[in-house]
């Protein structure tokens, strides 16, 4: 169960990295980022299940979830704003901040 959880979180991390690098849509990149956050929280919960004082890992997981919620709200708002200005959410086409 323990190693299973760790391998599952490693798998989620790799799939999230793969999606983050290869996706051209900005919303899809944010979704892959959520996958990476979930891999990290799954790792925290699995490791805190191993040790005795398990509240610390769960509290850190709650913090990570809250920061991920803030990140998702801000990132999707930025994607919406870019879509309104550029009519596209492709990452390779959004070169507004490039020199």
């Amino acid at each position: 169960m323990f190693e299973q959880g760790l391998i599952l979180s490693a798998y989620l991390l790799c799939v999230g990295f793969f999606g983050l690098i290869t996706s051209r849509n900005m919303v899809r990149a944010l979704m892959s980022l959520e996958l990476i956050f979930n891999a990290i929280t799954l790792n925290f919960i699995t490791l805190s299940n191993l040790f005795d004082n398990r509240e610390t890992g769960e509290i850190f997981t709650l913090f990570v979830i809250a920061v991920a919620a803030a990140e998702a709200a801000t990132g999707l708002a930025i994607a919406l704003s870019i879509h309104r200005n550029r009519r596209s959410t492709r990452i390779d086409q959004s070169n507004l901040l490039k020199w």
Partner: peptide, 12 residues
């Protein structure tokens, strides 16, 4: 987050 993502996908 998932509902927000679905809305963002549908808008953009």
């Amino acid at each position: 987050i998932n509902v927000l993502t679905v809305f963002a996908v549908m808008i953009t």
